[in-house]
C-alpha cells in the first residue's frame, strides 16, 4: 500500500530514532552481509530522509557496501526496555558531515554512553563501539519500517513505501 510521502517516519518515530538508542547497520554485497554501528541519526523534516553517521575507519565494509549496493537496514533499539524498530531504505548519498551532524554525533555518543552506564556498562567498556574516526554521513530514503520489539508483534511492518 502506498503511503503519502513523509508518513513512513512520523514525528514520534523520528523522535525515537534520534534519541539515545543503539544503532546497528546491515548491508550486503554479492550475497555477503556486513554489520556496522551508527553514531547518531537525524531525520529530515517531514521524514522523507534519514541521515546516519558511521565511522568509515571502524566500519569500512559497511560504508563501501552501502555505497555500492545502495540498500541498507538500520535497527534502532532502546537498551532500557528493548523497544526496537528497523528501517530499510536506499542510500542516496554518502559524504562528509555537516556541522549539524557533527553536533548530533557528539551528543549521541555522550547520551548513549550515559544510558549504557545507567545499565551497569561503564563508558570505558562501551567506548570501543563508538569510534569517531573518519565519520561519514549516509543520506537514506526510508522504504520500510518494522516493529522489532521482542514479542508477538516483532517483524510487523509499521509502514511501507513502494514508490
Amino acid at each position: 500500500m502506498q503511503s503519502a510521502p513523509g508518513c513512513l517516519i512520523d514525528a514520534e518515530l523520528a523522535g525515537f530514532l534520534e534519541s539515545p538508542v543503539m544503532i546497528i547497520v546491515g548491508t550486503g554485497l554479492g550475497g555477503v552481509p556486513e554489520i556496522g554501528r551508527g553514531l547518531g541519526a537525524l531525520v529530515e523534516a517531514g521524514g522523507a530522509a534519514l541521515h546516519l553517521v558511521v565511522s568509515a575507519w571502524q566500519w569500512p565494509r559497511t560504508v563501501s557496501q552501502a555505497r555500492e549496493s545502495g540498500t541498507i537496514a538500520i535497527t534502532f533499539a532502546r537498551p532500557t526496555d528493548y523497544v526496537t524498530y528497523q528501517v530499510k531504505g536506499q542510500v542516496e548519498w554518502i559524504g562528509p558531515l555537516t556541522p549539524a551532524l557533527h553536533a548530533r554525533a557528539a551528543r549521541y555518543a555522550a547520551e548513549i554512553a550515559e544510558v549504557l552506564a545507567g545499565l551497569g556498562m561503564s563508558p570505558e567498556l562501551t567506548a570501543p563501539w563508538r569510534s569517531k574516526r573518519d565519520l561519514v554521513a549516509l543520506r537514506i530514503r526510508p522504504q520500510q519500517a518494522f516493529v522489532q520489539t521482542p514479542g508477538p508483534r516483532a517483524g510487523h511492518a509499521l509502514a511501507e513505501r513502494t514508490g
Binding site: I24, G28, V32, I35, I72, I74, Q86, K88
Partner: peptide, 19 residues
C-alpha cells in the same frame, strides 16, 4: 551479557539486521 548482532540478506539483497 552484551547482545550479539546478526545480519542476513534477502534474495534481492535487502539486508536484515537484528539483535
Amino acid at each position: 551479557v552484551v547482545p550479539s548482532i546478526l545480519c542476513t540478506l534477502a534474495a534481492d539483497g535487502t539486508p536484515n539486521v537484528s539483535y
